[in-house]
Amino acid sequence: MSAVFEKPPLWQRAAPMIQGFDGPLAFAVFLLACAGLLTMYSSGYDFGNRFLDHGRNMLIAGTIMFVVAQIPPQRLMSFAVPLYTVGVALLVAVAVFGITKKGAKRWINVGLVIQPSEIMKIAMPLMLAWWFQKREGQLRPLDYVMAALILVAPVGLIMKQPDLGTSLLVMAAGVSVIFFAGLSWRLIVPPVVIGLVALVLIVVFENQLCADGFRWPILHDYQQQRICTLLDPSKDPLGKGFHIIQGMIAIGSGGPLGKGFMQGTQTHLEFIPERTTDFIFAAFSEEFGLAGNLCLIAGFVFLILRGLAIALEASTLFSRLLAGAITMIFFTYAFVNMGMVSGILPVVGVPLPFISYGGTAMVTLGLGLGILMSIAKSKRLVQT
């Protein structure tokens, strides 16, 4: 009789919680996390407790990923409208009585100081995926217009703070959902062409557009300065162009194989600004060179391809759209960060996933990975 009531071993009780986890995705994240810890140790070893804090943030993100992965996609869908509504309400509250730091009003005190725009990185794809799921099989052009309004409202509030980096990430997540939902190419091509033409005109007429006293409509002064600095950082090498110039010097000085671990002179002589956060890619490039960069990029490419594969294999439209959008968030993070450090994109506050220091960004990454794991897990459990 005692054998009947004997408890199963702990590993057997924990097995259902781990069963169905996507191994290739977890392996890619593990490799990127190792690269992040290695780089943070080198670039931040004389930066207080930054390395230990980075490891702690990774553990928090991993815990969040594990917990969220236990929530079925159907349950995640029920959070879409409440989370989006709360996020927009908090953004409105920030605009009315938010906390201003360094000229930007991005925070609000609700018992603790939070940055509501971070909520929208996950709330936006959740909401739009829910919207298209509810209209599956009966989509009309008006539904895409409504989806665009759902996207534009919070993005506009975030840009007003101003926070170009976060608004870009939220916009990318929302546009990804709308695109994957079947938006016609005829509606996508014209804005892309207009954007490319505008880019060419900015380059051609740089001297006139970036002349002293000339102000661009829509953009804030600092955003205009960032674009003009990108076009010619040598105009202010010790001021606004310093970040870009030092980042490019560090990347170039790494050469094919890099200077070696802990041997980066630009990094350790503190020429690279924000070397543990936004510009950590420059520190990585200096020490590990082109070979290290190719390996890092390969890791991100594998992560993105695996995320898209999970999206393709998902069993519902909601899961497919959500997995695709979350994957594109990872792509946008990596592409924008590497681009701005390399001098091909304006400098915005976008960290490099798993590499850059930052607790809030790491929590967002953990949530995103948890959602991808949940979708992959639900598919495997259905198949078994």
Results as ranks from 00 to 15, higher is better:
residue 80 A to D: 04
residue 75 R to H: 02
residue 80 A to G: 05
residue 21 F to K: 06
residue 92 V to Y: 04
residue 79 F to A: 05
residue 70 Q to C: 06
residue 50 R to K: 13
residue 53 D to I: 14
residue 41 Y to I: 12
residue 55 G to N: 04
residue 87 G to R: 00
residue 69 A to K: 06
residue 40 M to A: 11
residue 96 V to F: 15
residue 48 G to T: 10
residue 85 T to G: 14
residue 23 G to H: 12
residue 69 A to I: 05
residue 56 R to V: 13
residue 50 R to C: 08
residue 65 M to I: 02
residue 50 R to P: 04
residue 62 G to H: 08
residue 71 I to Y: 10
residue 68 V to D: 08
residue 26 A to N: 06
residue 70 Q to G: 10
residue 39 T to S: 09
residue 76 L to C: 01
residue 47 F to V: 13
residue 24 P to Q: 03
residue 60 I to K: 02
residue 21 F to S: 11
residue 20 G to A: 04
residue 81 V to L: 02
residue 55 G to K: 05
residue 13 R to C: 03
residue 36 G to E: 14
residue 80 A to H: 05
residue 61 A to N: 07
residue 59 L to H: 07
residue 97 F to P: 03
residue 28 A to P: 03
residue 37 L to V: 15
residue 58 M to I: 13
residue 65 M to K: 02
residue 43 S to A: 15
residue 81 V to H: 02
residue 78 S to M: 05
residue 18 I to C: 03
residue 93 A to F: 13
residue 53 D to N: 14
residue 62 G to E: 07
residue 18 I to Q: 03
residue 63 T to L: 15
residue 62 G to T: 12
residue 21 F to M: 12
residue 21 F to T: 08
residue 57 N to W: 06
residue 20 G to T: 06
residue 83 L to Y: 06
residue 93 A to T: 09
residue 31 L to C: 15
residue 34 C to Q: 13
residue 61 A to H: 04
residue 41 Y to S: 13
residue 53 D to F: 13
residue 13 R to I: 04
residue 64 I to E: 04
residue 89 A to W: 01
residue 85 T to K: 05
residue 96 V to E: 09
residue 64 I to L: 10
residue 49 N to W: 10
residue 20 G to F: 04
residue 52 L to H: 10
residue 27 F to K: 09
residue 66 F to S: 05
residue 96 V to G: 06
residue 69 A to Y: 09
residue 51 F to R: 07
residue 86 V to T: 02
residue 53 D to T: 13
residue 86 V to R: 01
residue 27 F to D: 05
residue 95 A to E: 02
residue 22 D to Y: 12
residue 55 G to P: 06
residue 70 Q to Y: 08
residue 28 A to R: 03
residue 93 A to P: 11
residue 69 A to M: 07
residue 47 F to H: 11
residue 68 V to M: 10
residue 29 V to H: 04
residue 23 G to F: 12
residue 39 T to K: 11
residue 52 L to M: 12
residue 55 G to E: 05
residue 28 A to Y: 09
residue 26 A to L: 15
residue 63 T to W: 13
residue 67 V to T: 14
residue 77 M to A: 09
residue 39 T to W: 03
residue 37 L to P: 11
residue 76 L to R: 00
residue 56 R to P: 02
residue 45 Y to L: 09
residue 14 A to S: 04
residue 20 G to S: 07
residue 24 P to H: 01
residue 32 L to A: 09
residue 94 V to Q: 03
residue 46 D to T: 09
residue 23 G to V: 14
residue 79 F to G: 01
residue 52 L to A: 08
residue 81 V to K: 03
residue 72 P to A: 02
residue 16 P to F: 00
residue 97 F to I: 11
residue 71 I to S: 06
residue 36 G to V: 11
residue 45 Y to E: 11
residue 50 R to D: 14
residue 29 V to N: 09
residue 59 L to P: 04
residue 69 A to P: 06
residue 33 A to Y: 10
residue 58 M to N: 08
residue 74 Q to R: 06
residue 25 L to G: 00
residue 27 F to G: 10
residue 21 F to L: 15
residue 75 R to D: 01
residue 49 N to Y: 10
residue 93 A to H: 12
residue 26 A to S: 13
residue 31 L to F: 15
residue 19 Q to K: 08
residue 86 V to K: 01
residue 17 M to F: 03
residue 33 A to R: 06
residue 73 P to R: 06
residue 45 Y to A: 13
residue 88 V to P: 00
residue 36 G to P: 07
residue 66 F to C: 10
residue 57 N to G: 00
residue 93 A to G: 14
residue 40 M to Q: 11
residue 83 L to G: 05
residue 78 S to Y: 07
